[in-house]
Design a protein around this nucleic acid. Structure first.
Lengths: 290, 290
DNA sequence: CATCATCTGTTATTTCATTTTCATAAATAT
DNA sequence: ATATTTATGAAAATGAAATAACAGATGATG
């Protein structure tokens, strides 16, 4: 471990706390696409970060450089060194860690899962599912199991802002028969069921299905038995180098769905959102005006 | 639309024969450590290649640029594109959908977030945090906010299996002062706080800190104020083409941590796991019907 | 050998980018 | 609330770097 090159990126991050608001904003902008943006003219960098020109000049001084040109020179040196490095760390995600480190192995697996999963998704199915989730004429039920109820709740928290007529059911609870009384034909269930598949969830799906509800299922690559009842199923690859499965890919799908539903209903829910935003608004960490 | 982006390096090599002696000398100097040298001042490049300043200016014109600044700008663009490259070139993620489809746009953003986030994580910090989370001599508290409590609970559900002496606190609840009574110096808090940062979470962090507990923070790129109290912070990029933020990257980190802690404590907790799994199965039996 | 064409470097000019100065605004403490 | 410190941006002043104009050098051709 002789290498102590301490890149500028490192230095910026280390000093992040000593920086002022505008400077931090600038710092993030630099790191955003590093190092390219720092190699351009100072004024361009300033405009990009929406701070004034002197702010940039002051920050590079704070970082210990004698001026912007010196800062750039060092950036170029860094770039040169990186290009020459025979074992460029291009194939690792976490810079300083060996490729065998769990951070890199795990991330590799997740990216791979995402690629596989997305490759097998039918976009039309997805669009249909989003339309169903956006339809406020129908009641929307969200169902999760022992572990997956966290995903279900995450979805619920967001959909709650987007649309009314929505219920979160935890399949392990014994209160759910109550909810089912009100289910009408055409209502929509979004169900999460990953291995190991839960009897309760299946049972609930069956009853919902019997009542004429439409089911959308988020499951894993082996597919929960619920998928036979579901109108649309999304199967995620979830295997990672761990004793447990990864929820990252289903979460990605779920968040994408939230974004899509949001787009579909924007007109209706804009006010709804703003009202809620205000309610939660308590911090002013972000600049108000330029 | 298979862009053959035709790098500047390519263009130089292609035109190598049309160049004069001094220009060739210069060209080789540029390619020597590309692209770093081309991003410096023209005069430095000239001195480096031992040619005169106008020679450089003439050559960039010969290459089809309107001036040296334009040449540099294109170099930077190239660099920026290259930084994103690793797999972002995977033209579309969801096969049947156009690249502008939300599935592809969203996934692009998430992959980008992951790369950025992992690139900025210090593996040693990560290992340290995992060791802290694995230490059963200390009580482990897991804290989440309004939205992030889903992440907190997801972590809790897994850690619960791995180790004893663990508590999940929801910061929006008002029951938490209760838990804090028992906090001892050296206890560990894993705290989730993403924008918009919650006062309750900060308060709780302060009290825990005052009691001598060690804090591990999962936050976003702008970092919750809690980070000043935290021994270790992990900042995730969370911006996606949506009205909301993405929890995919923090989830990835969290799952990786679970895997790592699992590895650290495997000897101790193997039995524990099996016992718990059994218990869940039995519980299911009891709840089969309601 | 002379002449022309082309290449190259020196010098001068202009343009552009960085730095400095100063006034205002925000945050903090009193 | 008021005062004091600190942060920030607008604009002027400074400096450097890129371009243009010119002249010397090199090599080719008749």
């Amino acid at each position: 471990m002789t290498d102590a090159p301490l890149t500028i990126s490192d230095r910026i991050q280390r000093q992040l706390d000593d920086l002022t608001r505008a400077e931090r904003q600038l710092a993030h902008s630099i790191l955003e696409n590093y190092p390219a943006s720092g190699l351009g003219p100072l004024s361009a960098l300033a405009k990009d970060a929406q701070v004034s020109v002197p702010t940039v000049a002051r920050m590079v001084q704070k970082l210990g450089f004698n001026g912007y040109p010196e800062f750039q020179t060092e950036l170029r040196e860094e770039l040169k060194a990186k290009a020459k490095d025979p074992i460029a760390k291009h194939d690792t995600w976490a810079g300083g860690a060996p490729s065998g480190h769990i951070l890199n192995r795990f991330t590799d697996a997740v990216i791979d899962n995402i690629r596989h999963t997305l490759g097998q998704i039918d976009p039309q199915d997805f669009d249909t599912a989003c339309a169903m989730a956006a339809n406020t004429k129908r009641h929307l039920f969200i169902v999760g199991g022992r572990v997956t109820h966290t995903l279900a709740e995450y979805l619920f928290l967001h959909m709650q802002v987007i649309r009314p007529r929505i219920t979160h059911i935890q399949s392990t609870s014994n209160t759910w028969p109550h909810y089912l009384l009100d289910v009408k034909p055409g209502d929509v269930f979004i169900i999460f069921d990953m291995r190991r598949y839960e009897n309760n969830t299946l049972k609930l799906a069956e009853m919902a299905h019997a009542k004429g509800a439409k089911l959308i299922l988020f499951t894993d690559q082996w597919r929960s038995p619920v998928h036979q009842l579901a109108q649309i199923s999304f199967s995620s690859r979830i295997v990672v180098p761990s004793a447990w499965d990864s929820a990252a890919t289903p979460l990605l799908l779920l968040e994408t769905m939230v974004a899509a539903v949001q787009d579909l209903t924007w007109g209706d829910t804009k006010d709804r959102m703003e009202a809620l935003e205000d309610m939660f608004d308590q911090t002013k960490l972000f600049r108000k005006f330029t």
